[in-house]
């Protein structure tokens, strides 16, 4: 938290900043509530307006403020962790427009729309598709071992990157305005998303092996049996790829195991008697 506050409060020499530090901090905190009124019509639109409002109040007043505000309650949707960068850049552009140094051909709305969709795609792939399963996979190693710190491992592992993005990218967005797009491009985030997903697959492979091995050891069964588990897992993943629901797969798997268990117990009982 201290790091977040420090990064947000840095002013850079030579860069004009009409919006004071305190207001920028306030906007950053408001961005944590971006999705509080998420709806199917304008998605994060209200939240984006709500977050930017303290900054807009510093730049405009009266009728002009109301007119700018109306512009921001429209449709908006991006990844929640990359929204601060869009907000920072938009604030910078508004600041330039308010002080009359902006490019007259530039429409801030167009910029917002132009970056929101690609940022959403990049962020969703990186955070939801890559980082979240990766952090969960690592934390589950601890959880399966019965270590009570596993939830904390997950929280720490996961939140390091999004907090960095929320903070540094917001500051960058505000400092660089439209040029912040180049900053995000230089980080090659789609490549990172792919690498994270590949690492996730490897971690999940290790986790599955660990869980199966532990189970066989507990049940005092020969370890080599564990390699057979790959067959149902591959079948299940191919079925899931076809769009079959998780719920159905869970119930088919559980019902099969339950029936095999009952049948096996009956067989053992029959042989014993």
């Amino acid at each position: 938290m201290c790091v977040v506050l420090y990064v947000l409060s840095i002013d850079v020499a030579g860069v004009g900043m009409a919006i004071p530090r305190k207001t920028r901090l306030y906007i950053w905190f408001r961005l944590l509530l971006l999705q509080a009124s998420w709806n199917f019509e304008r998605l994060q639109g209200l939240g984006f307006f709500y977050s930017l409002l303290p900054g807009l109040k510093k730049l405009y007043s009266n009728e002009e403020l109301l007119s700018v505000s109306r512009k921001y309650v429209g449709y908006f949707n991006t990844n929640v962790y990359l929204a601060p960068m869009v907000a920072g850049a938009v604030l910078k552009l508004e600041e330039e427009q308010a002080s009359g140094i902006a490019d007259p051909t530039l429409e801030i709305d167009d910029f917002k729309e132009m970056v929101a969709a690609p940022y959403a795609a990049i962020g969703d792939a990186l955070f939801w598709g890559g980082l979240r399963p990766l952090a969960a996979g690592v934390a589950l190693f601890f959880a399966v071992k019965g270590i009570l710190w596993a939830p904390l491992v997950f929280i720490l592992l996961y939140n390091l990157v999004p907090t960095w993005f929320r903070t540094v990218f917001f500051v960058r967005g505000y400092r660089q305005g439209m040029k912040s797009v180049e900053f995000i491009q230089s980080h090659r985030l789609p490549d990172w998303a792919i690498h994270t997903k590949e690492t996730t697959v490897v971690v999940l492979g290790g986790l599955s092996a660990f869980m199966v091995f532990s189970q066989l050891t507990q049940q005092q069964l020969p370890s080599w049996l564990g390699l057979w588990i790959l067959i149902p897992m591959v079948i299940l993943s191919l079925v899931a790829r076809k769009g079959v629901s998780t719920l159905l797969l869970v119930f088919i798997s559980v019902a099969s195991i339950f029936l095999i268990g009952v049948f096996w117990a009956d067989m053992v009982h029959l042989i014993a008697s």
């Binding site: 589950l140 997903k197 986790l207 869980m211 897992m233 299940l236 869970v250």
Partner: peptide
């Protein structure tokens, strides 16, 4: 014990089936 093992494995299988790698 086997159902307890199966639930996370089904989850992993679904992730494998849908992850874009």
């Amino acid at each position: 014990a086997w159902v307890q093992l199966a639930l996370p494995l089904v989850g992993i299988a679904v992730i494998l089936g849908t992850i874009n790698v």
